[in-house]
Amino acid sequence: MSRIYDCADETARKDGIADAASAVRRGDLVVLPTDTVYGIGTDAFSPKAVANLLETKGRGRDMPPPVLVGSIRAATALIDDLGNHGRDLMEEFWPGPLTLVCTATPSLSWDLGDTKGTVAVRMPMDPVALELLKETGPMAVSSANKSGQPAAATAGEAIEQLGDEDVAVYLDGGESESPVASTIVDLTYAVPRVLRSGAISIERLRAVCGTVIGELRKGRTKPRKAEDEDTEAAGGPGTEDAAQAGAVESEAAESAAAESGDVKTGDAGTDATGPGTAEADRAGTEPEAAGPEGTDRSKS
């Protein structure tokens, strides 16, 4: 039976975060608020826990979850190469709704799924999420909904979809203030590329990076709002997690030629949205073992 904590109450919030942190350390699943939609998360370094997360959502290893962190330092311990703009993007938009897909540190002892050596990382701007992440370290977090269903903007909506059997703890932080999916940017190429449009506009990204390649997609040109945080850039199921499924392939050359504008054609995916970058248009969120900033447990 799930334990539900109203985080608007100071005592309940403190107890809930302590209970959720213990649950994550045991490899259990918890639901937490983020600055986009609610997420379901667990210990990023427990393959069994991550497999349970994917099973609970109803998806496979080809859609690995993103990783949420509580600090920039924690993120850099997971990333092998930030490219030319990664640090600037973190300093400008974190904590906030920007997911960065980067090459993962090769020595990390985890199994998030078929990531093809990449990791999608985000630091959410939500006080409850940040408190929990500073207790647990990096968490694998996907949107708190069944795959293909609408994303949860409240803890109640998450409970309706996920039930009270598979999730150990629900942290109720109230209704999401801005249920717009995070923007996903791929930094594994020389020129940053938007894999999914979201809360951070490409104009704001270009103000930091200069040249940014727009999202390759068919038809839809506006950011998603109260939709599944796991919906990929081209409009199919899968998302913040979809950004984790592997490296973007042949379209990269075409994208590089575009330099500054959105490419409207191509067949190039929440929360979370993930490590890897399943070609954003194809099928389709928010532990540092040696302490809040440590990484002892993350290396083999």
Results as ranks from 00 to 15, higher is better:
residue 3 R to S: 13
residue 5 Y to V: 01
residue 6 D to K: 10
residue 13 R to Y: 00
residue 16 G to E: 01
residue 18 A to V: 13
residue 21 A to G: 04
residue 23 A to Q: 05
residue 24 V to R: 02
residue 28 D to C: 02
residue 28 D to T: 02
residue 30 V to M: 06
residue 32 L to P: 01
residue 37 V to M: 13
residue 41 G to Y: 04
residue 41 G to I: 03
residue 44 A to I: 00
residue 52 N to M: 09
residue 57 K to R: 15
residue 58 G to W: 11
residue 60 G to N: 15
residue 61 R to D: 13
residue 61 R to S: 12
residue 66 P to L: 11
residue 69 V to C: 15
residue 81 D to W: 13
residue 82 L to W: 15
residue 85 H to S: 12
residue 86 G to I: 08
residue 89 L to N: 08
residue 89 L to F: 11
residue 91 E to F: 07
residue 97 P to K: 15
residue 99 T to K: 02
residue 106 P to D: 11
residue 118 T to M: 15
residue 121 V to D: 04
residue 122 R to L: 10
residue 127 P to Q: 14
residue 129 A to M: 06
residue 131 E to D: 15
residue 132 L to W: 04
residue 136 T to C: 14
residue 144 A to I: 06
residue 149 Q to H: 15
residue 156 G to A: 08
residue 159 I to D: 00
residue 162 L to Y: 05
residue 171 L to Q: 03
residue 172 D to T: 04
residue 172 D to C: 06
residue 176 S to D: 01
residue 179 P to H: 06
residue 180 V to R: 11
residue 186 D to H: 05
residue 195 L to Q: 10
residue 196 R to Q: 08
residue 199 A to R: 12
residue 202 I to C: 10
residue 204 R to C: 09
residue 206 R to S: 10
residue 213 I to S: 11
residue 217 R to P: 04
residue 227 E to N: 06
residue 228 D to M: 06
residue 230 D to F: 12
residue 236 G to R: 08
residue 241 D to P: 06
residue 253 A to H: 06
residue 263 V to S: 07
residue 271 D to Q: 13
residue 272 A to E: 10
residue 274 G to Y: 03
residue 277 T to W: 03
residue 278 A to E: 09
residue 284 G to M: 05
residue 290 A to K: 07
residue 292 P to R: 11
